[in-house]
Design a protein around this nucleic acid. Sequence first.
DNA 1: GCAGTGCATGACTGT
DNA 2: CAGTCATGCACTGCA
Length: 609
Amino acid sequence: MASSSLSIKSCMNATCGVSTSNSGGWRKGWALRSGDFAILCDNCGSAYEQSIFCEVFHSKDSGWRECTSCSKHLHCGCIASRSLLELLDGGGVNCTSCSRTAGVGPMNGDEKPNGFGKPKVDNVGELHSASADSQLAAETKLMQLGNCIDGIGTRNLLQLQSDETNGSCRKMKQEDILPPVGEIASTIFSNFNQASNASCQTAKPEIHRTVTAAKDLYESLAQTNLSMSLGSSLGNPNPFPGGVVDERVSSKASSPLQQGPRSRHLLPKPPKSALSMDANAGMVSQIRVARPPAEGRGRNQLLPRYWPRITDQELQQISGDPNSTIVPLFEKVLSASDAGRIGRLVLPKACAEAYFPPISQPEGLPLRIQDVKGKEWVFQFRFWPNNNSRMYVLEGVTPCIQSMKLQAGDTVTFSRMDPEGKLVMGFRKASNSIAMQDTQPSAIPNGVPSSESYFSGVFENLPIISGYSGLLQSLKGSTDTHLSALSKHLHSASGDISWNKSEKQEDRTRDGLLLPSLMVPERKRTRNIGSKSKRLLIDSLDAFELKLTWEEAQDLLRPAPSVKPSIVTIEDHDFEEYEVSSLTEVYSCYIHTHVYVCIHFLFRLYIYV
DNA sequence: GCAGTGCATGACTGT
DNA sequence: CAGTCATGCACTGCA
């Protein structure tokens, strides 16, 4: 345990003199508002002179935490390594003695040790508050990230006071500080903290890590925003009924969210697309939530894309019999070959082995599956040896597929009806499910790609598209994995546009906008991209996140009015070019209102004008 | 010639 | 990099 070098920090404003220890509690009194890692006094707005890291937690008076269970003091080294946001918002920190999650700062009787990263689902107001707080801090973080990089050696306010603490921070492996599943933003900020600390201390070699953190930060923003949107738009006290969050937060007292780093990986990371909504002009008619399989050995192994995202309403419909319980097992988006005339439905291996009878012979066995109408089908459940693995298929599904009028892109769901144990096969038409579908379903030739409409909405009039193609060219050659990844990501999205559009449009895209042809590797272009590269499609919910992120991002990315840009023209589009030396991560930023698109790119900010 | 079957290939993804 | 899985394709049987 580090020494308790008391560091009650006084406001730098001599006339204020408020110290951090009596400024009214962490959340109220310790808001980050500036671009620096300083803390502003809530009383007068002046910055405290110190970073909040490490030392300020070394005494109970200045925020020493006690375990709510055993009152043991927490290890300050752990605290110091936690994310800033987590600390500010009172995120869980495990007691070093009993592993219970400790509360916030000096624990008062009415304080709830339930801050950011541990949204209390039964109190949506609190959840929103935490999200809003976190977003504030997130925005600040983003700016701080830049500042940190920018200010390596000059503006580094992350002054870790003791070598001992510094050492512990540096030694902390990323996996040690990564928060548990669901604590997305906290995860990000933990990463960020670490990365920014490191980068600020060790300068350029660590920038790469910081870039990673920046990328994660963006994702966290998207996640946060999404949660907020869902919650607020629904007015549902529980924004995730029966869903992932619900399970995780409420299932047990020491939920993964509260268990700190130890609980990491206990559950698969929730998919970016884990949440989807039924399309409705009114935003939502019903939340469709990806439910981790309730049981079976696949619970922790099933890829989230196969998590059944079935609504309670659908469950009710399938069940019919009030005495029966429907246990959603998994679902799969039909591929072209699944829905084709071959009549073979490829089953995800994990699902097949988890929920279907074990088979030892390739011939398998006949499987009776009831559809939602009560009609019983018999499919041959079998496998083929595939490399050293197996490939499971359901044969003879064509009549059933046709009966349900399913096509590629639609989703079949497999459930079990208890207590009978009968397998039930449901379906969900792509056109009925919202544009937020799964990771695979979209640009299926036969179906109306659920994401197509979305993308057309997002990108259709995207003037920047030709502009950023040029920028993407630069990205293409980047050796930075993150830049390349983003390039690929952008490429995927832009390529999807052409794949999903008509030939004419595709030609226009390629000839006029120069996107796919420039970005698609030669080998890929010669292949049947439309059918084989569905995974290249940007997840539609990702796009949703992107949209939200960009919307939120414009405030983050908009340069200060005092900064004068230079005008550059890229492929007939004018950009305002700003020096943004603080940002090394590539951000493409599309503002949904078509106001402008900006791309943060290699130390520069381009704003389409 | 067509449909069905089984395997091979390689793109994609998660670790 | 290994595993998964969508799909291509060779092979076979049948009309």
